[in-house]
Amino acid sequence: MGHLAIRRLYAGISVLVLGFVLLPLVVIVWVSFFENRILSFPPTGYSLSWYVRAWEQEAFRNGFLTSVETALCAVAISLALGVPASLALVRYRFPGRDAIQTLLLAPMIVPGIVGGAALFIAFIELEVLLDMDVSGTLGGLLIAHGLIALPWTVRLVTAGLAGANRSCEEAAASLGAAPLLVFWRVTLPMIRPAIVAAALFSFVISFIDLEKSIFLVGPGRTTLQIALVSYLEWNLDSTVAAVAAVQILIIGTLLIVSDRYAKLARAF
């Protein structure tokens, strides 16, 4: 085979693969504009009425609001815990450093369903012990979502810190700046891109989580992903497609913005 032929073969396979990966997204957005009452191909016409109907569905509206609320809190938790921890991991040498790094990345490795089941059991035992509600409350959901966002923050911020020039911090310290001032005025500006990317990424990871949340949602407090899955168990129409299209738009925007700060491909 000639050089050109090989290249064409690779290009051909790649186009097919890319099409396969993108097909679901394209189709679901397309379907969200269908006019048909019962989903069928080809469409009889196009309309925007499913978007109105999706917003009118209480499960989707409340789910969306809960998801946004939860994701914002998950961002706060993962940054508050993850940025100082990353600083310790990159800037200090201390016994057990490798173990702590592994531990902080562990929530990414433990399967979502297993971690979710363990948290669910622990929360119920805690409820019995303390005689108060934990599972099915926002607090329980926030702990779970903070946990899944944390490793991504640690990964992105440690990478950012490793790339930041340490001599600037040393120069500031040698000129008499207190450690907190050094962090605030020197380190933070240098790693701001990594922090922005970590925040956006944490938001997305929390927003799309399904496996952990499924154990922790209570009546009246359901995230959007759970609302989607429970709706899908009985129905399949363009309402779901409209919700999906909105979600694709939001997450797509966040990810493209985040890619400007830290290359997404490096987060994996």
């Binding site: 990966v21 993108l22 097909l23 679901p24 997204l25 189709v27 679901i28 379907v31 989903l39 997305v204 990871i205 927003f207 799309i208 399904l210 959007l224 992903q225 989607l228 899955v229 899908l232 399949l236 779901v240 497609a241 999906a244 979600q247 694709i248 997450i251 797509g252 990810l255 997404l264 491909a265 994996f268």
Partner: peptide, 17 residues
């Protein structure tokens, strides 16, 4: 990478369609 982060619920809905 984009499709990866769209969520399992959305992607699964699409495959059902």
């Amino acid at each position: 990478i984009l499709p990866l982060l769209m969520g399992n619920a959305v992607r699964t809905a699409a495959w059902m369609v």
